[in-house]
Design a protein around this nucleic acid. Structure first.
Lengths: 179, 179
DNA sequence: ACCTGAACACCGTTCAAGT
DNA sequence: ACCTGAACACCGTTCAAGT
């Protein structure tokens, strides 16, 4: 399954095809159907695998607003490390069970701060969809345009990202503090 | 071009194909290439057309935080009215010129409130990507699942959406008020 | 049991040919 | 000038056949 992520990162989403993955693994394309029900299931696995990177080994000693912002930042880092995967994350939702399991630590920071679990989930999910939406805006080029990434815009996106993230975290902090 | 939106809304994104659009218009698929350079250009036009609905005829007499929240709400309404278009909006960025033109009125509300244009753009774009990300989460089902929309979850998404939106607007309000 | 070639029903797009 | 049929190079997936 790592081979799928490799093709995605190096050759793009369109190249991640059953036939191509098959030849990469030295096997006929149809043999893949023994291990996975179809292409969409394969893409779903890729999505889950990449999302899992977002929460791998983060230090978790902070107030919930700090932890929430840190989650946003590290989630974004993973997305920008796999630009070709961003449209995939947008299209194939992360498995709910897996997501909750991975975010346990983060949610416990809210609990320690006396925030109700429903409110905590709302805040975390809001940051999650903001991060994904922002990554789409940064990475997304009309499919077919030449792949010159043009890094000069990077600081613009970085500043924009932090402004929106901090606005959202500040807003939740204020609203959840008033009980 | 309205025919493309029609197919998208009623039959889904996968059905919006050159050949199918051609037969819908009573013409050979290849004749479409006289009017549009290719499929991606067609999808880009669909995206712009749908995004334009988001700002059609909104009343614009309010403080910028109110106007910003109103934009988020109406943008979301349009996305939910075209669920099959949401993945498209995520993948094909709205034309920048068009977007700025459509948002002129909203941006002027910030100007009237004494907010610098760069800060205004950041706030508007942040809300925009949040709305899109949220719509993706609500509409997105693993492609291939049965299309039973299951409306019972709707209030959950509505509440989540408003909580995140208001947090963000509140956050910007607070940060931009301190000059 | 596991793998696979050929086949089916599609795609977007090109291009030479028709009116 | 405008349209189009056939063709090219692909897809995901099925299925009967091979070992």
């Amino acid at each position: 399954m790592g081979a799928a992520v490799e093709i995605l990162d190096t050759e793009g989403l369109d190249a991640l095809t059953m036939r191509r993955l098959g030849t990469r693994l030295g096997v006929a394309a149809m043999s893949l159907y023994r291990h996975v029900p179809g292409r969409d299931a394969l893409l779903a696995e890729v999505v889950n695998r990449i999302f899992a990177e977002s929460v791998a080994g983060r230090p978790e000693q902070a107030s919930w607003p700090e932890a929430l912002a840190a989650f946003g930042v590290s989630y974004r880092q993973v997305l920008l490390a796999h630009p070709n995967a961003v449209p995939l994350l947008a299209t194939h939702p992360v498995d709910v069970e897996l997501g909750l399991r991975l975010l346990t630590e983060l949610l416990s920071a809210f609990e320690a701060g006396g925030v109700a679990q429903a409110d905590a989930l709302t805040a975390v999910q809001s940051v999650g969809v903001y991060v994904l939406g922002h990554a789409l805006a940064q990475v997304g080029t009309p499919p077919g345009a030449d792949p010159a990434p043009a890094a000069p815009e990077e600081p613009f996106y970085d500043e924009w990202f932090m402004a929106g993230l901090l606005a959202m975290v500040t807003g939740f902090e204020q609203r959840l503090a008033s009980r």
